Simulated assay, not measured.
Amino acid sequence: MPTVAQIEQALFQLAPKDLAFDWDNVGHLEGSPDQEVQRVLVALDVTENVVSEAEKLGCQLIVSHHPLMNVRWHQAEMQTLRPDRYLGRLLRRLVKADISVISMHTNLDIAPGGVNDALAEALRIEDPGPMPGDETGLCRVGRLRNPVKLSDFAGEVCKALHANGVRYAGDRPVEYIAVGGGACGDEIDAVIAAGCDTFVTSDLTYHQFLDAAPKGINLIDAGHFPTEDPVCAKIVAYLEKEFPQLIIIKSTSHKEVIQYFVEGE
């Protein structure tokens, strides 16, 4: 059976390590590189529910998108390994269960066939490609076959991504679209410069929505989880092709946690 190290190298063929942002933490983050693997669980995040699912399914490895540990997010928590703190408790559970973790993050955002190509495919955007002038390489742009109203497209985005709801602002017909899975609000000006009329991403602020119409851009915030989760199925398919002897499972315990209440519904 393949080892964790061999699976990590295969994943770096899909999403090369040198594509990751310099602050990021990608690759094999926990467990022994020599551990033999029979079952793999793929999930967007490593949560306590995901660890429980991996234990129940008898998985030796979790492959996640978001890093298990990252000093940008977990600087204080990474100073200890205490069971009364969330990260410490999670790490101790993984060690005790002998479950390894590999995380592919910003390198998978940028890589061909990664997060943003999976998002563009889910939204049926035609001929998606890198966004002109995008130095990060994150976003993808493409067109709809026919222009549609923003409200109609927002509904289609919600349905296609199985989101609990979407937030949107703007007043233009939708035709030339940029997508950026996860928190890509910093790319709005680059999206406008590329001539797009609509940007689908997540984690947008009030002021970004407020400025959307004056700047001539439609914004759709479809949620962090819904815009990135489509890549998990791509990882499953890739690993099944590379390691047909393995059992690869997409997590069913990890779902969108944000709920919406809309008055009158």
Rank of each mutant, 00 (worst) to 15 (best):
T205V: 05
K215I: 01
R143F: 10
F225V: 03
A222N: 03
G170R: 05
V141M: 13
E135I: 08
I99R: 03
P112C: 11
K159I: 02
T198Q: 13
G223I: 01
A178D: 05
Y168L: 08
L150R: 09
H224N: 03
N164Q: 11
V231T: 04
V148W: 05
E121N: 11
H207P: 09
C139N: 10
G113N: 07
E121Y: 12
R143Y: 07
E228H: 03
E121Q: 14
L119T: 00
H162P: 01
K159L: 12
N146S: 13
C232E: 14
S151C: 10
L123D: 10
G180C: 15
D152R: 11
H207I: 01
H105V: 01
T201E: 08
Y168Q: 07
D189M: 09
V166R: 08
Y176I: 02
R124V: 07
M104D: 08
P130M: 13
R89A: 14
Q208H: 01
G129D: 13
P173M: 06
P128I: 00
V115A: 08
L123S: 06
G113H: 03
P130E: 12
P173C: 07
N107W: 05
V101N: 12
K149F: 04
L150Y: 03
L119E: 07
L91A: 12
G113D: 06
R143N: 14
P130V: 10
N164M: 05
E135P: 04
V141A: 06
G129A: 15
L144A: 10
A183M: 04
